[in-house]
Design a protein around this nucleic acid. Structure first.
Lengths: 232, 232
DNA sequence: ACCTGAACACCGTTCAAGT
DNA sequence: ACCTGAACACCGTTCAAGT
C-alpha cells in the first residue's frame, strides 16, 4: 500500500524539527495557510503527533517567532567601534535583512503577545545599546516604544502596498484620471513608485524604512543631547 | 416552538446594518471571535443570508474598516488656524480617540490590504494637510510612509503590553529578581510602568504615542525647513 | 515516550431550492 | 430580491487507545 501523503522526512520528531518545518511551510504557503493538519501532513505524521512537542497552535506560533529570532543570531559584536546610534542602526538593519526573507513574519510578530526568552534577550540587548550610549533610563524607555516594531526591521505600513502590477490596458488610463480627480493629493505624491517594485508584496521599501528609522534615531539623539526629561 | 437563538432585531438586513452588527459583535468578542455563523446568529438569521449583502468574509472585514473610518468623520474643519504640524497632530489624535474605542481595530487595519474609497479619502486629506504646509510632494510621500499606521492613531507596539496584572505572591519576587538578572537593561528601563494601567490591553499608552508622534513630526519639519531632498 | 484513530464542535462557502 | 437547508471541505483539540 502506498502512503498517499508522506512527502517529508520520516525521522523522529522533536521541537526544533517541528518549528523548522513550520517555518518552511509558512515560507511556502504563508501563515494563513499554516494549519496543524497541513503541517502534520508535511511531516508524514498524524496531526495529533505534533501535540507531543508543542502544547497547541499558539505555542507553535510562539516557537516560530523564537526560531526566527535565532536566525538573526548575534549580530554586531564588531559594532563596538560605532556610537550608540550607529550600533542601533546596524542592528535594526541586520534584523530587517533576516526577517525580510520571511515576509509573513511581520504579521506573526504583530499577532503574538507573549514575550518569550528570545524576544526579551533581543530587547534587552537593544536597550543595552542605548543605555551604553549614555541615554537616561527614561529616555531609553520612550525610545524603545517609539521605535517599536521597527526594532525588528518591520515598518508600520498599513494596507501594505499597491497591487504589484498597476492596472494596464484600455480603461486603465481613464480610471487613473478619475482617481487623480477624486484623490488629488495622493496623485501628487504617488508620482514615483519605488524602484525595486519587483521584490513582491510583504517586502517594504528599503529607502522608506531607513528614512523613518533615521527620523526617529535623530529625534532621540536630539532629545538626548538637549537633556530631555518628561517634566521639563 | 421557541426560537433558541434569535436575540437580535428581526428587521430586514442591509449592508450598513450588517456592518454595524459586525462591529458591535467585534466589540463584544474581538475580531478572532467574529465568524459569519456567529454574526448571523446574532442577527437572528441563517449564515447564508449574509452573503446577499457582503460578498464574503474578506469583504465584510473591509466593510468594517470603512464603517470605523466613517465614525471618525470629518474632524477638524476648525483646525484651519493651526499650521500643518498642528493640524496633522490634532487629526491623528482625533482618529486615535475613535479607534481606541475599538481595541480590536488595530489588528483589523493591519491585516486588510485593500484600499477602499474611505481609506483613500482619509489618506488624501491627510496628504493635503502636509502639502498645504508647503512640504514638497517628495517629502510628503516619505512623511506618509514614516507616519504609517500612526496616521490612524495606532502605535507599532509589538507584543502588546505586559500582563495587565503583574504577578504577585510568594515566588513572584524571586522571579522578578531572576528576570532582573537575566535582562538587566530591561529591568533598568521598566521601572515606571504607565500611570493609566487600568485601561486594559489593546489601549496603548497616550504618553508614548504622543512622544513618538512628535518625534516624527519634528523630524519632518526639520527636514522641510532645511530644504531636504533625496539626492542632496 | 511517542504516535494513532475516532470523535466533537467549530469554520467559510457552494449550490439548488424556496418565497 | 431576499432568505433557507443541506452539504463540502476544511479547522483546532479532547480523549482513549495502541506500541
Amino acid at each position: 500500500m502506498a502512503r498517499p501523503d508522506a512527502s517529508g522526512p520520516r525521522a523522529r520528531l522533536n521541537r526544533p524539527s517541528v518549528l523548522a518545518a513550520a517555518v518552511a511551510l509558512a515560507d511556502e504557503v504563508g501563515v494563513e495557510g499554516l494549519s496543524m493538519r497541513r503541517l502534520a501532513q508535511e511531516l508524514g505524521v498524524v496531526p495529533m503527533a505534533l501535540y507531543k512537542h508543542v502544547r497547541n497552535k499558539d505555542e507553535l506560533l510562539d516557537g516560530m517567532v523564537e526560531f526566527l529570532i535565532g536566525e538573526i543570531g548575534d549580530v554586531g559584536e564588531t559594532e563596538a567601534a560605532e556610537d550608540w546610534k550607529g550600533r542601533a542602526r546596524t542592528r535594526v538593519l541586520a534584523a530587517r535583512e533576516v526577517l525580510m526573507r520571511h515576509p509573513w513574519a511581520r504579521r506573526l510578530f504583530e499577532t503574538r503577545s507573549t514575550k518569550t526568552g528570545a524576544v526579551l534577550d533581543y530587547m534587552n540587548s537593544f536597550a543595552g545599546i542605548l543605555l551604553s550610549g549614555g541615554l537616561s533610563a527614561e529616555l531609553t524607555h520612550h525610545a524603545m516604544h517609539a521605535i517599536g516594531g521597527r526594532m525588528w526591521g518591520f515598518t508600520q505600513e498599513l494596507f501594505e502596498d499597491e497591487p504589484s502590477t498597476p492596472p494596464q490596458g484600455p480603461e486603465a488610463a481613464a480610471m487613473m484620471q478619475e482617481m487623480a480627480q477624486r484623490f488629488p493629493h495622493i496623485a501628487a505624491i504617488a508620482s514615483m513608485e519605488h524602484d525595486d517594485s519587483v521584490v513582491g508584496r510583504g517586502c517594504d521599501d528599503q529607502f522608506e524604512f531607513e528614512f523613518a528609522l533615521d527620523l526617529i534615531l535623530d529625534g532621540i539623539e536630539r532629545r538626548h543631547l538637549s537633556g530631555w526629561r518628561s517634566t521639563p
